[in-house]
Amino acid sequence: MDALKSAGRALIRSPSLAKQSWGGGGRHRKLPENWTDTRETLLEGMLFSLKYLGMTLVEQPKGEELSAAAIKRIVATAKASGKKLQKVTLKVSPRGIILTDNLTNQLIENVSIYRISYCTADKMHDKVFAYIAQSQHNQSLECHAFLCTKRKMAQAVTLTVAQAFKVAFEFWQVSKEEKEKRDKASQEGGDVLGARQDCTPPLKSLVATGNLLDLEETAKAPLSTVSANTTNMDEVPRPQALSGSSVVWELDDGLDEAFSRLAQSRTNPQVLDTGLTAQDMHYAQCLSPVDWDKPDSSGTEQDDLFSF
């Protein structure tokens, strides 16, 4: 819950932080000083300027060897085509990944977070970031790969997607708890209302004896509580940590079903599988986004697919 609360507080303090972009060759504004600060901008989305290598189908939802083989196929196909790589912007948030063309600003792909089953910074092609997700059109699994400016960037994108998945799962947990509370309150309110109706004398007997209905007592009954809980029953509950912020979080049926399955089948359902080692994760978390744009010590960066 700490990640969720800190993310909400950060967004309320400075929503404009989320509009910064990394990996864009110096076009961005001043960047936060450390990885923790940038992680807090996830709610509205972190932007990464990358190059799209392509996509291939895979048979399993996750796995280092599986993704490595898929990336190898994608890279080989991209090299064989001889075409310049498409420059894209990857927007990562707890909602998922939005992929747009840098030149036309046209939407290429919009992947809900619950469809993503794996992401990684490839070991062999260490400047490549990739994720595996279920197609929104059918049940097939797709591996999408992107060329980053350097290994640090690939690791940073991988960690960002993993963190977005974690925050999304926490949102789901909060929403589920809130819905259970509202359902319980609604049920209790309905029981109270039913009890009051059972003990209320029939209207005919009131008229016969000349008694008047006590409207004041009726007004004191917990009807307002019942209506408050039943009027918006169809509205999706939102985490309290975000009250007053500009973010509107809505959970669709697909996300609810997917996270429910994860909660039942996995020990740590909030953790998205990645190909990063503990050492890689520690190294990337210690980086400032400013470091992502620094040239690798191995030599001059080449803006070309064939540089790796």
Rank of each mutant, 00 (worst) to 15 (best):
S117G: 06
S260V: 03
E64H: 13
L90P: 12
L141Q: 09
A241S: 03
Q187W: 05
S117T: 12
L147T: 09
R196Y: 01
T41M: 14
A68C: 01
K294W: 04
T77Q: 09
S112Y: 11
H137L: 12
D122C: 10
D122Q: 10
G25A: 03
L11Y: 13
S288A: 04
S117F: 15
S298R: 14
H282T: 02
R266K: 02
D293N: 00
K30E: 14
F169I: 01
D191E: 15
D126W: 01
G25C: 11
L57C: 14
I12H: 09
E257Q: 10
A241L: 03
R182E: 06
R39N: 01
S67A: 03
G254C: 15
W172D: 01
L206K: 07
D291T: 05
N138P: 14
L193T: 03
D101T: 06
T160F: 11
H144L: 14
F48P: 10
V161I: 07
P15T: 00
G23C: 08
T104W: 07
E44L: 15
E177G: 09
S260H: 05
S6R: 09
E257D: 04
L159N: 08
S297C: 08
K184N: 12
K176V: 04
Q163Y: 00
T277W: 00
L90Q: 07
S307C: 00
K91V: 08
V290D: 05
T104E: 02
Y283W: 13
S67N: 09
L272C: 06
R95F: 07
A278K: 08
G275R: 02
T300R: 01
Q20V: 04
L4K: 04
T300Q: 09
D126M: 02
D303N: 05
C143T: 01
A121N: 14
P201V: 03
K127Q: 04
E65Y: 15
A278S: 05
V207A: 15
S117H: 09
S81W: 10
D293L: 00
G54M: 07
Q60L: 14
P222Y: 11
V248R: 07
V247D: 14
A228M: 01
P269I: 01
A168Y: 01
A145E: 15
S297A: 07
F146A: 13
C143P: 15
W249N: 07
W292Y: 03
S135V: 14
S205D: 07
I74M: 12
K79T: 08
T277S: 02
L206H: 05
G8Y: 15
F169V: 13
T274W: 01
V248G: 08
E235Q: 15
R27K: 06
A68T: 15
K62H: 04
T218L: 14
I71D: 07
D2R: 04
R95G: 15
L276Q: 01
D122F: 03
I71M: 12
T200L: 05
G190A: 13
I113M: 09
K79L: 09
S6T: 12
V174L: 00
N211T: 06
Q173T: 06
F129I: 09
R13N: 15
T89C: 12
G244H: 02
R261L: 04
